[in-house]
Design a protein around this nucleic acid. Sequence first.
DNA 1: CGTAGCTTTGATGTAGGTCAAGAAATGTGG
DNA 2: CCACATTTCTTGACCTACATCAAAGCTACG
Lengths: 249, 249
Amino acid sequence: MSQRKALKVQDSPFARKLSAFVRLSDGDLVAMSDLYRRRRKFAMGIDMIHQGQVERNAYVLASGWACSYKMLRSGSRQIVDFQIPGDFLGLRSVLFRTADHNVEPVTPVLASEVTYRDLIDSFGKTPRLATAVLWAASRDEAMVVEHLVDLGRRSATERTAHFLLELEARLRLVGLGDRKGYACPLSQYLLADALGLSAVHINRVLRELREEGLVTFQKGNVTFEDYDALVKLSGFDRDYLDHDGPLLP
Amino acid sequence: MSQRKALKVQDSPFARKLSAFVRLSDGDLVAMSDLYRRRRKFAMGIDMIHQGQVERNAYVLASGWACSYKMLRSGSRQIVDFQIPGDFLGLRSVLFRTADHNVEPVTPVLASEVTYRDLIDSFGKTPRLATAVLWAASRDEAMVVEHLVDLGRRSATERTAHFLLELEARLRLVGLGDRKGYACPLSQYLLADALGLSAVHINRVLRELREEGLVTFQKGNVTFEDYDALVKLSGFDRDYLDHDGPLLP
DNA sequence: CGTAGCTTTGATGTAGGTCAAGAAATGTGG
DNA sequence: CCACATTTCTTGACCTACATCAAAGCTACG
């Protein structure tokens, strides 16, 4: 029975992701299965997590996309990151007393709930899991850092190109894209809020990239016309995403 | 002997910092003392960590300031964060195979070296330490996220004010500042590279803030003339930094 | 006491914002 | 399967926040 469970967990995107960092034993996998009990659906428009909430829960995305963001008094918002299937979401809201950000579905979402107790208990049972989660959190931080460089020092065009390439690299890791392109449910408004630009300007940048024969962002699809030129243009270096093979044997 | 050691560690800024997240047992403190063996000095101008390096080590800052940054091909750089005494530095360079960023002293620095083995060994011995480090890393990520919001959606003035206030809050936690002000060894160039602005513009913003009677940034000192007005101007909310008392009993 | 790194200021240029308005999609109820 | 509503996309005209360039005064320290 627990064997069946373990196998099932092993096939989940989350287990696959953590396995990239730390080799997980059967015991680890069984402990992880406790994190997988409550499946929940979220429709678009309702926050999965909102700033200031005290319920300490997080989710592992099973299907659909979400975005985490912060609102400013001025009414503008900054999207910090998008979450794709397999991503952990809201870790800081479990770890801290109150959530410091919002998370909203971008498409209808299916996710497994992880409570504070689940997480702490499983850390107690299998310390390696804590290390694996630390690793996963650090990879996420590496992405946020790269995003910060985008906003601080790259032009609108470089930034947009870089962002589309990063998404491809992430999606490829979970089998949802390749260097030809991927399905992308983001609106230009979402893109604008992520890249710190206006929706109008994003539109112009996308047109330019399309007319230059580099990428097409249309009808929910990103298609790379010239992947290599795009990499060159944006200075994209996927090193910060790749860590082939478990780091902790 | 090990008792003396433990007490010494308990007094270190690093132990104080982690204790804010997780109550540490004597055993935990002894395990931590292993992380404190090698003290090293760094002069200005030599990187403590550089992008692509394979030696997997990190440091805990004992005294002085440092900054972590990324360089772009264009020659411009983005400072991701400053480290002040007590801060962990280069965690991602221990955890990953190669460092994805640089760290440079801003002043002469005294730091304790932490190697990959040290860290993994101590996690094995005391799982709570792994959890504590996860927490500390998450707090750091919260700061990077707020910095990202700065770059994406705040004006140069708001951004600068926000940044100066955040530094105050962090320095206050280690007893190096209060709402009157603090000693700040940063040049306007460093400020510019952190805030994604040009040094010239930073200078103008600082002048404006000074002439408005809000803050003075001069001669290595930040002095708040009107703390509350500055908070209002920048929309600063210190919640993301405060987590009074251990979260894990 | 000189020279190299900071800070300050002015003049001018430009990337990207804002406003406005029409055209395509997309969705919804009948 | 169509009519209407709503969101999303696209483009043009104009404007502003910040960059860049240039040059002069500071400071500090070898």
